[in-house]
């Protein structure tokens, strides 16, 4: 006897700076690294500041607001974990702080997306540990 097990969606690793990023998300806060010396925001997490070389940084809370920078509409899944979701639209959001991140909308069908559409972050738990930052129309 065999049984079919759906392929799970991929999850981020719960480790290092990525673990810290997602730990803030699990607390309902979107935070990015900000250089303590020059004040530059950065994402994805990096060990040192590429603008000035400083090692000191802090996790600083984002306003959670941004605009749609670009997106694609995946008409078919290329990873089996998303087979039931297609069509779906990964978006790139440019935050007020200037950093950009890949995410998904929770309340906007793909054909309603527009570049520069204002959006704000919401938090969607996807496993016991991981909460993903997603977005809704602002």
């Amino acid at each position: 006897m065999s049984e079919t097990v759906a392929t799970p969606r991929p999850l981020p690793a719960w480790q290092g700076l990525t673990g810290e990023f997602y730990a803030w998300c699990a607390q309902g806060e979107l935070r990015f690294q900000r250089c303590d010396d020059c004040g530059a925001w950065r994402h994805v997490p990096r060990e040192i500041c590429a603008e000035c070389g400083a090692a000191a940084w802090s996790w600083v809370r984002s306003s959670g607001r941004g605009r749609v920078f670009t997106w694609t509409v995946a008409a078919r899944a290329m990873h089996p974990g998303f087979a039931a979701d297609a069509p779906y639209a990964p978006v790139v959001v440019e935050m007020e702080e200037g950093v950009r991140l890949v995410s998904l909308m929770v309340d906007c069908p793909p054909d309603a997306l527009a570049i520069d559409m204002p959006v704000e972050v919401v938090f969607v738990p996807v496993s016991t540990e991981i909460t993903l930052p997603k977005f809704r129309r602002a």
Partner: peptide, 12 residues
Amino acid sequence: ARDYYMPYGLTA
């Protein structure tokens, strides 16, 4: 890609 693209369906 694993941590910041793939969880959002950006996989290929």
